[in-house]
Design a protein around this nucleic acid. Structure first.
Lengths: 329, 329
DNA sequence: CTGAAAGCGCTTACAG
DNA sequence: CTGAAAGCGCTTACAG
C-alpha cells in the first residue's frame, strides 16, 4: 500500500501538505491540491487507519454489546444502530457476549485498548460494580437492558407500562384467570414487566395465582412446556401473558397440537413484536418495542458524548411501548 | 490510559522489557516479569490497539460483508464466523452492504486502509471486475454467494444439487405439475438452483411451463402474491419449489387464507431451513444449508491465508445440501 | 500557503 | 537477560 510519503514524493510536496489535502484543510494552493488528488488516485492511496487512530486518539468506532445476534430483536437493533452510526461517520463493532460474563468484560476492554471510542451496552451480563471501573476509560451507555443501580445514561423502554397495557388488554377482553410467563430472570427488565402485570391485576382485583406464574422462559421450547403444564391443570387459565413472542409461539404451537383453541380456550399475548408474531397462525397480539428509535437514539447520544468528551451524566430516557392486537387474544 | 512507558517507569525497567512481558517473549527474568505483571495490573494497563496495529502491520481483524443482518441466514452465518474467529484470536467486523454496491466497495476499502487483514464476501453486489482490483491489498474469499467468473477461493454450497434434490422429492411424491419460484435474479446461486430444478424435471420428462415460473422473489409478500397468481389459474400446479423459506411461508399463509390445503392441494418446498420453516403450520419441507460449516470453513481458510501471506489461489469448496422433510410436501 | 520536526504507543533488530 | 534507538504512517503545532 502506498503511504503518504509516496504521495508526497510523487508530487514533490511535503507530507504535511498531502495530509492537509486529505483532511480538507483550507490554505492549500488549488493547483497543488489537484496534484495531490490525482497522485492519490493514481497510487490508489487510502490513509492508514491505524496510524490515524494512533495519532488522533480517536477511532470513530463504537462497540455494541449484545447477547445473541441470532435473536431477531438484536439483529434489528444492531441494524438500526449501524444505520445511524454510518450517517454520523461512525463504525459499529459488533460484540456478541453469547450471554457470557467474561466475554462481556473482554469486550469492555476494547475501551481500555482504545480500540473504540465508546460502548453501548444493549445487553447486560455483569453487575454494575463490575462494569463501573470501565466508565473511566470512555463513555458507556446502556440501551434496552438496564440495571437501575447503574449510573449510566439509559435509553430504554418503559417495560412496566408494557406489562401493564398487555395485561389490561386481557382483562378488557373479559379474562379473569390470567397466567404470566416471564423472561430471563436475571435482568431487571423482566421484573419491571411483571410489576406492570401485577399492577393491572391488582387494579382489577384479580388474583395472582402462584401456579399461574412461570418464571425464566427464553424460547419456543419453554413455551411448549408451559402449555403442557397448563393443559395438565384442573383449573386452567384462560389467558397468558408470555415474556416474549417466541415463548408465545411455542405455547400456540403446542396448543394446536392438542387441538386447544387459541384464543377461544387460551388467549396468548407476547412481547417484542418480532417477525414471527405476524407469521404464525393465529397472529400473536404483542407489545411492540420501538427498536429503530431505541437504536438510533442510543447512537446519537453516544456520538454526542464522544464529541463533547464530557463525563456522561446519569439520565434515563424512557421510550413508549405499544400494544399490537392480532388474533391470539 | 496508562502507556507502556508508565509501566516501564513504575518498574524501573525499559519499555522493551515490558513489551517482552506483554508478548510472552522468553528471556525475561522471572522476578522482573512479576514486577511488570503487577505494575500492569495496578495501572489497569492494556496495550493500545492502534499502536500495535500500526507497528505490527496486522489487525487481527476480518471484515465480513453481508447484504442484510436482519436476514436470519446472515445472522446465523455471522454468528458461526464469529465463533471460529474468536477461537483463532481474530475479530470480525460486520459490514452490511444493505444490497448497495457503493457500500460494498466502501467496505472493501477497509483492506486498503489496513483496517482489516482480509475480507470475506458472503454476499456480492458488484461484478467481479469491480472487486478484482482489491485483491492486491489482501486476501478476499467468497462464501455463500459467488460469481463463477471470480478468481477467488470460494466456500459455497452445491446449489444446483439443492435445486435437484428438492425437485426430485416433489416428483417422487407423484407431482407432475410443478411450479418454481426463484430468488434474487441478480445472483448466480439463484440460477444454479434453477438448473437443478430443470435437470430433475427433464430427467423425469416433465414439462416446464412458463406460467409456472416465478422469478425474483425475496420475502413473505412475494410468496403471498405468487399464491394469488396460482389461485387465479385455470390449471394450477400441484407443487411449488420456492426460492426461500420466507417465500414458501408467504405462499402457505396465503393458501390458508383461501382455505387451500397445503400439502394436499399444493405441496410447497422452501430453501435454507430457517427457523421459520419449523415454526409455521404446516412445517416447511426445505433444503438445509450447512451454515455453521460454511462460516467456520471460510474463517479458517481466511486465517490460514492471512498467516501464510501467500496470494490465494482460485479454488472452490462445494458443501453438500440436505433435504429436510416436514409437512408441507 | 508550505515544510521540518515531534510525537501518538508500540515492537524489533541490534548491541551489549 | 536487558536497553537505546529506530520506525510503523499519520497529524499538528511551530516557524517561515
Amino acid at each position: 500500500m502506498a503511504t503518504i510519503k509516496e504521495v508526497a514524493e510523487r508530487t514533490g510536496l511535503s507530507s504535511t501538505t498531502v495530509s492537509r489535502v486529505i483532511n480538507n484543510h483550507p490554505y492549500v494552493d488549488e493547483s497543488k491540491r489537484q496534484l495531490v488528488l490525482t497522485a492519490m488516485e493514481e497510487l490508489g492511496y487510502v490513509p492508514n487507519s491505524s496510524a490515524r487512530r494512533l495519532r488522533g486518539q480517536r477511532t470513530q468506532t463504537i462497540a455494541v454489546i449484545i447477547s445473541r445476534i441470532v435473536n431477531p430483536f438484536f439483529s434489528h437493533l444492531v441494524d438500526a444502530m449501524e444505520r445511524t452510526a454510518s450517517e454520523l461517520g461512525y463504525q459499529i463493532i459488533l460484540c456478541d457476549s453469547r450471554l457470557n460474563k467474561k466475554r462481556e468484560l473482554a469486550h469492555l476492554e476494547l475501551l481500555k485498548a482504545k480500540q473504540v471510542d465508546g460502548v453501548i451496552l444493549a445487553s447486560l451480563q455483569n453487575k454494575w460494580e463490575d462494569i463501573k471501573p470501565y466508565t473511566r476509560y470512555g463513555p458507556i451507555i446502556s440501551c434496552n437492558e438496564y440495571d437501575s443501580m447503574a449510573k449510566l445514561p439509559m435509553i430504554i423502554c418503559d417495560q412496566e407500562a408494557g406489562g401493564y397495557i398487555g395485561t389490561k388488554h386481557l382483562i378488557d377482553r373479559g379474562h379473569t384467570h390470567i397466567a404470566y410467563a416471564g423472561g430471563a430472570d436475571r435482568i431487571e427488565l423482566t421484573h419491571d414487566r411483571k410489576k406492570g402485570f401485577v399492577r393491572a391485576m391488582e387494579e382489577a382485583n384479580l388474583p395472582i395465582l402462584p401456579e399461574f406464574m412461570f418464571p425464566s422462559n427464553y424460547g419456543i421450547e419453554d413455551g411448549k412446556r408451559i402449555f403442557q403444564r397448563i393443559f395438565a391443570m384442573e383449573n386452567r387459565p384462560t389467558a397468558i401473558f408470555a415474556g416474549g413472542d417466541e415463548v408465545a409461539a411455542g405455547i400456540i404451537q403446542e396448543a394446536k397440537r392438542f387441538d386447544y383453541s387459541v384464543p377461544r380456550q387460551l388467549a396468548v399475548i407476547g412481547f417484542d413484536n418480532q417477525p414471527i408474531a405476524d407469521l404464525i397462525d393465529p397472529g400473536i397480539t404483542t407489545i411492540d418495542q420501538p427498536i429503530e428509535l431505541m437504536g438510533s437514539r442510543a447512537v446519537e447520544l453516544m456520538v454526542d458524548s464522544i464529541k463533547q468528551d464530557r463525563t456522561l451524566s446519569y439520565n434515563k430516557e424512557l421510550l413508549p411501548l405499544q400494544l399490537i392486537i392480532r388474533q391470539s387474544t
